[in-house]
Computed example of a mutant assay.
Amino acid sequence: MRTVNIHDAKTNLSRLVEQAAKGESFVIAKAGKPMVKVVPLDAPDEGRVSRFGFLCGQLTVPDDFDRMGEDEITRQFSGDE
């Protein structure tokens, strides 16, 4: 993530806000010390990103999924080698 010093941020505020609105977050620093992070309003909170369902519609489960390897499992547990 890009860091911009506070003087440059004041000078280029309009351009920086446009970039942030497009998803290019940045940090404003004062004397080299990071002070604030500028992110677009629709950006998800860092600690609250939900991963549930992120592959929805991209995977398929075979109809026999619950029986896959059934013969091998039965063979191994029955002692038949």
Rank of each mutant, 00 (worst) to 15 (best):
G53S: 14
F77H: 05
V36S: 03
P62S: 10
G53T: 11
V17Q: 07
L59N: 01
T74F: 06
G47W: 11
F77Q: 07
E46D: 15
I28S: 07
R75C: 08
L59Y: 11
E72I: 10
V17I: 15
V49M: 03
K37D: 04
L59I: 09
D64G: 03
G23C: 05
G57Y: 05
S14L: 10
F52C: 05
V38Q: 10
V17R: 04
H7I: 11
T11M: 12
S78N: 13
P40Y: 06
G57A: 00
F26S: 04
K30Y: 10
D63L: 01
G69K: 06
A29D: 09
I28W: 04
G69C: 10
T3Q: 05
K37N: 09
G79R: 01
T74I: 14
G57T: 03
T74R: 15
K30E: 07
S50N: 11
T60Q: 06
L41D: 15
V61C: 04
V27P: 02
R75N: 03
K22D: 12
K30R: 13
A9N: 01
L41S: 14
A43S: 15
Q58E: 15
E24Q: 15
S50G: 12
Q76V: 13
D8P: 00
M68T: 06
T3L: 04
V39G: 08
R75W: 02
D71Q: 06
I28F: 04
A29V: 04
C56N: 14
I6K: 10
Q76M: 13
A31T: 08
F52Q: 15
V61A: 04
N12S: 04
R51L: 08
G53Y: 13
R67C: 00
A43M: 10
E18P: 00
V38P: 06
V61P: 01
A43K: 14
F26K: 03
P44E: 14
F26C: 01
P62R: 10
S14P: 05
D45Y: 13
V27Y: 09
D71R: 05
D80P: 01
C56V: 09
D63A: 15
A43L: 01
R15N: 11
I28A: 11
A20P: 00
E72F: 06
F54V: 12
A20T: 04
F52E: 14
G47P: 00
V36T: 13
D45Q: 06
E72S: 05
K33N: 07
I28D: 07
L13Y: 07
F26W: 11
E72P: 00
A31D: 14
E81V: 04
T3M: 06
D8S: 08
M1E: 09
M68R: 08
M1I: 11
L55Q: 06
I73P: 00
F77M: 15
D45R: 13
G79H: 02
C56E: 14
A29T: 03
D80M: 09
T74E: 07
F54A: 13
M1T: 14
A9H: 05
V61N: 02
F65T: 06
L59H: 04
L13H: 04
G57K: 02
T11S: 07
T60S: 09
R2M: 01
D71L: 09
E24A: 10
D66R: 07
